[in-house]
Design a protein around this nucleic acid. Structure first.
Lengths: 248, 248
DNA sequence: AGCAAGACTTGTACGGTGTACGGGAACACG
DNA sequence: CGTGTTCCCGTACACCGTACAAGTCTTGCT
């Protein structure tokens, strides 16, 4: 059953490889995945390569392929690995769903900030690794605690978590661009704004944008973004509350 | 000034190339960008290559490089081109911001569904092409019409548009995976769910997920998603309304 | 002890990628 | 008739993912 490509690493035929304790090289799916995450964090998705990964493990590229079928499979493993990083709010009954949601959203956001490459991968695969599933389960639990009727819960989940995904993605990739340019976020931001403002016709059309930026408050880019995130999350919460009231 | 890399195609030194009317090959930045969009739509970002693009234009790869400095620059041009597709709601004063927001969100969503590759690019570049700027301007205009105080407007924008970005991205990439697998969305969905349900330990942990899916309503995947999107957007709107009330 | 059957590693090679570089053709202007 | 400038292309380089086959080492069986 090699010819028919699976839809995911996680769904391969249950032959979990009769493990030996001591490979000559000490290699192992776990270690490979860990090294992959490290390399991805360091170099970004675009510059990640199997040869570099293998070199970091003191091994040839083809050795890695004993443990992993393709590069994409490895990326899928790496993705699920970082999906296990968010600390999940305890879902004891009686806790306020608003706090749980804030906590979960913050975790999910920082995942994408810490690992910008993960953003580009979540859409590429069916996301059914154990950590991803656990995260989804927790999210469902929290949304269920809002009191929203069952048939509206998937929509509410989409509202909150797609927002956090979008926000974290944008933020993470911005951070990465700054690093690649060798600037701080504030430097990069100021430089970019400077260039844009010089464009012909900018002044006439973007007074509103300027006023918005100015009113936003906060001294650093990071501060402004935090404010935006917190406020947006409160928008989501208030929206859900309104929907709960409207549907009961 | 080639050594110091620009941050964007759009910010290159103002030398807009003294145009000739009749290139021997009929090539042109416009035509190249258009062909790039077509190829990206057909093959996806991963399989897009300069050589294929050039072949489609009856030209060698290196010819394209006369009009465009790098592949990334071309992708940036392609991105801004599709950013011009959303039909913008007319921003006449007196119109209801809720309707404008629904219209704009729907347009923005379908952009990412029609061009899944665009999702992966919005984070990669400073997004300051003319169409992107125009879109941002319209979004700001609509948000301003909510009556929210100025210093909260950027947060509200993030809430709505990062949500739409996330949702459209997920949806578009799912659609793309279906096409690559040669299945309809419903077939793919059913197949994937089938595989996941067979995983050991699934039944014990995901009764809630099953109940949510079942209650969601709608017969096809597309229908269920449309419901989710519409509801989530109403959550955003209700949230903003609540914030307007709370801050005035 | 001998040996066969794995489990693992590696070298080589193929077909692809982005793009630097230099040479040429076609045209414009003195 | 030079002499640029604008545009196009052939070649080449370094790198990529990975198929394939030939190792080597470990284990278990006789």
């Amino acid at each position: 059953m090699v010819s028919a490509r699976r839809t995911s690493v996680w769904l391969e035929g249950k032959a979990p490889r009769a493990r030996k304790a001591d490979q000559p090289s000490g290699l192992d799916r776990e270690k490979i995945t860990e090294a992959a995450v490290r390399l991805l964090d360091a170099e970004g998705l675009a510059r990640f390569s199997m040869r570099k990964l293998a070199a970091g493990l003191n091994v040839t590229a083809m050795s890695v392929y004993w443990y992993v079928d393709t590069k994409d499979d490895l990326l899928e493993l790496a993705l699920d690995r970082v999906m296990g990083e968010p600390v999940l709010p305890d879902t004891a009954p009686g806790a306020d769903w608003r706090d749980q949601l804030r906590e979960l959203a913050a975790s999910y956001r920082s995942l994408f900030v810490a690992h910008p490459w993960a953003s580009s991968l979540v859409g590429r695969f069916l996301n059914v690794g154990p950590h991803s599933m656990e995260l989804a389960r927790t999210a469902q639990h929290v949304i269920a605690a809002t009191g929203l009727p069952l048939h509206l819960q998937t929509g509410a989940m989409a509202s909150v978590f797609q927002f956090v995904y979008g926000f974290g993605t944008t933020e993470g990739q911005f951070r990465q661009r700054c690093e690649e340019a060798g600037m701080s976020q504030d430097e990069y931001f100021r430089a970019a704004m400077g260039s844009v403002r010089e464009q012909p016709g900018y002044g006439e059309h973007f007074e509103r944008a300027e006023r918005m930026m100015e009113a936003r408050g906060g001294n650093t880019v990071a501060e402004m973004r935090d404010r935006d995130f917190r406020f947006a999350l409160e928008v989501q919460i208030a929206g859900i509350e309104a929907m709960v009231a409207r549907n009961s």
